[in-house]
Design a protein around this nucleic acid. Structure first.
Lengths: 142, 142
DNA sequence: AATGACCTTGACGTTTACGTAAAGGTAAAC
DNA sequence: GTTTACCTTTACGTAAACGTCAAGGTCATT
């Protein structure tokens, strides 16, 4: 009753090659069922693939993604195990928030440079622009 | 009069090896001055290195970082050139904001899982937790 | 029965981003 | 004057994340 997908279904849907999907299986990130020789992907497999690819877009290595997915899986209910998971989870979260700060800073600078270009195009005199844009940007640009 | 740095100064300050810094020079990301054989880094070089490393933390390839730095440099003042730069700048900015959305989603999910673990530890009954945490998370976890 | 469209498992190739010697130049410290 | 502590270039090595054949199995058309 529950929906399943073939490897090329997922390949098309997520815009990655079958090779990539098989590679993730080799790395134990996915464990699809089999129908004879062929791989059959469940909703859970599909969700995990989505998670992996988003992690990839954010810049994580597969090792890091593995670790994060393991956080969900590895929690076997034992009290001590759960404590470890929680700590790792918090560490990861802190790292992610640092990364967001870096990303925000990058966005701010690029947006600022974008505005500068727009003002130049609009014929705003350089002197006036200089007053509005801080030296930080210029230290990189020149 | 203006301050300069040696390669190991920057190496220590930013926590990367000299090899890495030389590699960035090979890739034309840095062009330090020379004092005899030795490299001398200006404030601009240092700022560029900081930019590169932040880009790296955010998950960019050196090729992407190169392109973004080129946006600052390549704008030679010609009108058409500036238009191209502006467009590329906007494209980059859009990509960055997509990445930010991905990052936010990742943070949200991990934070949610973190809260779940905390509630489990606090002895909140599973039934109640299930009502508060949506199915999206569980589709990945199980 | 053969063409085409899928799927499979190897296995070697490739790019990126450096690591890691190897071999040597310079300059202050002992 | 030689150890120590830097710096340099050249060059081969490597881990990650797949790409790219190669060789073959299955199943529906034609």
């Amino acid at each position: 009753m529950s929906q399943t997908w073939t490897i090329s279904d997922l390949s098309r849907e997520f815009g990655v090659t079958p090779r990539t999907i098989r590679f993730y299986e080799d790395e134990n990130l996915l464990t699809p069922a089999r129908e004879g020789q062929n791989r059959i992907y469940s909703a859970r497999d599909r969700a995990r693939l989505a998670w992996i690819l988003r992690g990839r877009r954010v810049g994580f290595s597969l090792a890091e993604i593995t670790e994060m997915l393991d956080l969900y899986d590895l929690d076997d209910g034992r009290e001590t195990q759960r404590q470890v998971t929680l700590e790792k989870c918090r560490d990861r979260l802190a790292a992610l928030e640092n990364q967001r700060a870096d990303l925000d800073a990058t966005i701010d600078e690029l947006a600022g440079f974008c505005r500068l270009l727009e003002e130049l195009k609009a014929g705003v005199p350089l002197e006036e622009i200089r007053r509005k844009h801080h030296a930080k940007l210029r230290s990189v640009a020149e």
